[in-house]
Design a protein around this nucleic acid. Sequence first.
DNA 1: TAAAGCAAAATTGCATACAATTTCGATTTA
DNA 2: TAAATCGAAATTGTATGCAATTTTGCTTTA
Lengths: 225, 225
Amino acid sequence: MPHTLRQKLADLVLLGTLKPGDRLDEHSLAERFGVSRTPIREAIRQLGASGLVEIRPRRSAVVRSFDRTELSEAFEAMGEIEALCAARAAVRFNEAERLRLRALIAASEDITARKDRAAALEMDFEFHGLLHDGARNWMLKTVAEETRLKITPYSAALFTMESYDADLGRPHCQHADIAEAVLAGDSDRAAALMREHIAQALISLQKFFDETAARPDAPKEKGRT
Amino acid sequence: MPHTLRQKLADLVLLGTLKPGDRLDEHSLAERFGVSRTPIREAIRQLGASGLVEIRPRRSAVVRSFDRTELSEAFEAMGEIEALCAARAAVRFNEAERLRLRALIAASEDITARKDRAAALEMDFEFHGLLHDGARNWMLKTVAEETRLKITPYSAALFTMESYDADLGRPHCQHADIAEAVLAGDSDRAAALMREHIAQALISLQKFFDETAARPDAPKEKGRT
DNA sequence: TAAAGCAAAATTGCATACAATTTCGATTTA
DNA sequence: TAAATCGAAATTGTATGCAATTTTGCTTTA
């Protein structure tokens, strides 16, 4: 897979090299990737349209940051969208996807036992991605992944933070429960469990930020006159 | 509000000057807006990230086109998202919004009677926009408007087509029914009516395309080796 | 000591130039 | 006549340069 410049730049944000509030300096980015500013600027604008970074005319683009309210609303919206995917997947999953889902949960069991956070993050992406595909609706999948993308700089933190070790088992159990409902074809239950899963993730994230001395809400740049 | 170049370019697509499948030639667009290719390219990339145009490496970008299946899936997804907004709005609307909604429906009554299609299109945007705001969730509003944006090149056609005159009254009645449910605080009913409203719009659109000799599904460019 | 002012440095926005690739049409060939 | 071929024109991708604006840090001042 030929990583485009846009993808490479996005990875800087998604993998946490650049954190919410950080500036995207065109010159240094161009130097880092060995290209001129022109393609860098185009990539930055694309990330801006995706909502990953904030474009500020005549000033450096910065990684998008959410305050408490925005973060809460983002998770609420994502909960509904993911619930929709889960409900559809429960009805539309095919045999290959059922097998894949079972294998995923089994692998997740192992990863959780080993407390491998990096693998757990990847597993989380795969689990939700499988449900997005299973919903059999291209637009719904697009919407779900765009939404997930926007808050990734925050949700990924859940898996890298030390204090989360104790809770690592809960997301796995929730995934397993959702999978069970999906495999049973119970769309209402799958949706309800998914909503609850996302709501729990928000609570964990908020707790994390409270403990680490208020990360969100801080980078809110003051307006200019 | 100073229309950015990106907005001006988007309007070309949204208002139908450029139709699905049309190429976006950088040189002629630069000439049209009196700027160089550089800012044009940046704007095109942004529209690409928004899903309005399709970026094809080394080849001209084209206005995104949907085949029958994609159009159907897009409307299904939008139906759910709009239903979500309507349900939330039914519970969270404030007094100012209630007044605005009533005024909107009244004005729509008039516009429908006069068969003013342009005004009807604008009214449609305002109606849905009001519900997006009323849901009191920034991310949900963003998702809803991004989704609407992607299919605007198609849905806007509903209001400009001649044969739609006969049906112009139905969207208005549906809006009125939805508004009634929202004002009554009946979120389940508002959601159900909204889903039905969007489903009807899809059917009208499909009928329109069938009559005008298959517009969608045609522009599907053949893949390159 | 802290705030205000100011000039130099850094940074963004845009135009232009050129290389790489694709597109298009004329010509040739079966 | 239709398909294939080849070359010129058109088009995209990227680098570079310069003007406009913002940022930064030093100096001045209350």
